[in-house]
Amino acid sequence: MDSTAILVIVTLTLVGLGCGLAIYLANKFLPEEDETLKAAEKVNQYLPGMDCGACGKPGCFAYARDVAQDLETLQATPCMALMNDDDALGKLGQSLGVDLSGGVRKVAVIHCTGESEVIFDYQGVSTCKSSMQVSAGFKKCPYGCLGLGDCAEVCPVDAISIDREKKIAVIDPERCIGCGLCVKECPNDLIELIPVEMPQYLGCNYLSKKDIPRREKCDVGCIHCRLCVKAAEGDEVKWDDEKDLPYFDPEKSLPAPDSIEKCPRNIIIPRKVK
């Protein structure tokens, strides 16, 4: 071997060794890392590690830090790859000392049928939030779905589509992963996460106690007749006095077929439950 080859090998080896030694020394002599980072590291080893960003965090480690700080993160912005991996989920629960296996899967529903009449011709920026700034939306009901798709925009799995004719968002319960991004996005707070077993939901959000003066009432929404509560056998339908609307207990998820039938406006919408 000539001397140049040896020189090349020696230089590269020495520089490589030097770099390795520098990292080793930095690792050894720097102070211990912060407690929060250690907790995050513990969570991080059970995450998929793909840094896909579907949870909304910049990477798996950022997600692990949020989970380590607040367990609610797992429900609010679930990592779907983790949720589908029972093994990793069980181990994560074990290391955190909580049971994660029995979680109830939740899906989003829209509390509106979109049937309310369009009374203005809105030509501004095409988002629900902007159109709400102009005399509370362009529909007769000031609390209803405007169908401009702010929720569809943020949905990470394309589960929300827009019915252009009715101007309403439609959620596909099969695709919905219950991440709750749309719940935060809707300016009218129409979207709610309900347990996947819930047999029906209310298709109205008319807040009569916040009535806007001189605005006609929606002629397809709830008329507050309470027939649904009277038709119920047990306590499957309850009355929300604050909103002046019926609601269904998410803890029990009981079916209320009589109430669905009795409703004069047909706004209690049955869901297909497997």
Binding site: A22, I23, A26, L30, P31, E32, E33, D34
Partner: peptide, 9 residues
């Protein structure tokens, strides 16, 4: 090295 030093200090 920069990353671990910032992370630890």
């Amino acid at each position: 090295i920069v990353e671990i030093s910032i992370r630890r200090t």
